[in-house]
Design a binder for these strands. Structure first.
Lengths: 161, 161
DNA sequence: TAGCTGACTTTGCTATCCCTAAGTCAGCCC
DNA sequence: GGGCTGACTTAGGGATAGCAAAGTCAGCTA
């Protein structure tokens, strides 16, 4: 099993965590809605306007995000307005923030305007810029090419005759 | 400008780094192809088989990934075979690895089989498990709810009359 | 030089995503 | 209790992403 990468064809793709995550957030509008939610957007029309999608799409995606447990509907009341629901990130949804930060970081480096990126992400406590980095459980910083992929407990193998 | 999040509607979405990254890798098959590339897959038919996509789709996406500079075609020759091209991650492509790790991590937590995730990502140097974490330039660990979003140098504002 | 093989391309179809435009509906204000 | 407003839904249609099946093509091997 040492050189198990060569054996890669024997794996089944049915238990790939990346693919399963993409089943939930694998389209553009869903990730952009989560971007908005992580930046404090809460109301339906603001989601649609800020993401730049139509209302039918916003309604469908928000409904799915609530069904998947990434957003939560919570009643609220503005003064002089009637009761409404707002959409707030759950803990499950907030755990996707590293994905958003990593995506933003790549775009800042490779796709920003000459003037630079449009937003800057800061640490709330100290104001320093925030990055997504790879780190191992022993505390070392890890470079993108410094990772090895090994079989995990849920690895399924195809039957080979 | 202190409470600029309330002013969010004045932003234009045209210079959002997340959206621009999604313009490049915003569909399922592209990210799964990058997953494969980061795990060492190099040949056309292996990409198609391991990602579970048809050959026409694999051809189109790989071509686009090369055009976008995330993959590079490199001639190689196996003994007794003719010369072919293989697809290898460029530095630009490798910088998306944190995105893949963050996606995998979320799937491991929220969408894995009861038996656990199918693969484990280890630090090449020490074997400890690798995670995507948020860290600020001052060296602090940052929680998903510990970030503030501020205007950056490339922020475009809509004209307001 | 004939055949094999890996790497695609072509064709034709389906499904999903997203759009605009026009409804619907609930409940606070007056 | 009639109107307004925010939050959707419905209807109809275009673009993109995906599939399977079959065809092309280059260049080693024999």
């Amino acid at each position: 099993m040492t050189d198990f990468l060569a054996d890669r064809d024997a794996w089944l793709t049915t238990n790939c965590s990346i693919a399963r995550t993409l089943d939930v957030v694998g389209n553009r509008s869903t990730l952009l809605l989560l971007r908005e939610a992580s930046m404090g957007t809460r109301r339906f029309d603001q989601f649609a306007a800020r993401v730049g999608i139509s209302e039918p799409v916003a309604a469908a995606r928000l409904k799915q995000l609530v069904a998947d447990g990434l957003l939560e509907r919570r009643p609220y009341r503005e003064p002089g307005q009637r009761t409404r629901d707002e959409y707030v990130l759950t803990d499950k949804g907030a755990q996707l923030v590293p994905v958003l930060v990593a995506l933003r970081q790549w775009g800042d480096t490779w796709a920003a305007d000459a003037a630079g990126p449009s937003v800057r992400v800061e640490h709330h406590d100290c104001g320093a810029e925030v990055h997504a980095v790879l780190r191992c459980a022993a505390g070392h910083d890890v470079e993108p090419d410094g990772i090895d992929v090994r079989p995990g407990p849920g690895l399924l193998r195809a039957n080979r005759d």
